[in-house]
Design a protein around this nucleic acid. Structure first.
Lengths: 127, 127
DNA sequence: AAAACTGTATTACTTGTGTGACACACCTTC
DNA sequence: GAAGGTGTGTCACACAAGTAATACAGTTTT
């Protein structure tokens, strides 16, 4: 079962997108494997302090992407193979790096300073 | 005058927040100095393909933060000193790095792989 | 069968964005 | 100096997206 303990909500992007991203990152991390259950709409919404419908929206999109499977009354679970996992991981990693680089360049921060900052802060962020 | 040529809209967070971030990054970069004019609501909205009111919302918030100054009929301009600039720069740099590290750790990506990815993609992203 | 869980659909409210109108400042022209 | 045009910021209202509240229907467990 995927964990949401390290879910840190962010007030800039919609919550349903953050939930989707969190699950995809969990998959990329290998924390979630094919057939794994996903938290129920209600339990996750209670944990995150949001409405069940917001979680439903996330799950619905993930279902359309073929990442989770739902059927009325039953628990939803992940349906994904190794190829998809590698693809998602590469995608998320690349996107995140590109966004970071873009932000740094907009601030005219050198490659060296960016790498140094990242390196020095690495241990401070909890896993 | 601050440039929006390298503004890359992103469909995850509200546009007005992205505009604020872009201007703050321009300030952090040193591209914008005290007294510099800021694009008019209409010209910027036309350039970005959004509504003048969306830009207005960004400028209004920046004015509340004491970063720009507006008065009816006159062009709006930036009001900021070196201390504020250093503060904004440190803030944005730290936030961006922390967000990157958090994302990487969620994907169980090692410090080495993260730095290597960033380093190898650096030259590919246009300034 | 009843209870406690599950996913789903309908509806309303809040926030973000779009459309339009207004008022003030500057600059040209008469 | 007065009149008009074009720039500027500001505001009120309408529409769309994100989120919340509630009710409904199926599955599992007891």
């Amino acid at each position: 079962m995927i964990s949401f303990d390290d879910f840190i909500p962010n007030d800039t992007s919609p919550i349903y997108l953050q939930i989707i991203l969190h699950i995809k990152r969990g998959i990329a991390a290998g924390n979630v494997v094919d057939g794994d259950e996903v938290p129920s709409r209600r339990s996750l919404s209670a944990l995150l302090g949001v409405n069940p419908n917001t979680v439903q929206k996330s799950y619905h999109i993930l279902e359309e992407e073929g990442i989770i499977f739902s059927s009325p009354g039953a628990k939803s679970c992940v349906t994904i193979d190794q190829q998809k996992i590698a693809l998602i991981r590469a995608q998320l990693l690349g996107d995140q790096a590109k966004e970071m680089i873009h932000a740094m360049k907009q601030m005219r921060i050198s490659k060296e300073e960016a790498l140094a900052t990242l390196s020095s802060l690495w241990e401070d962020i909890p896993s």
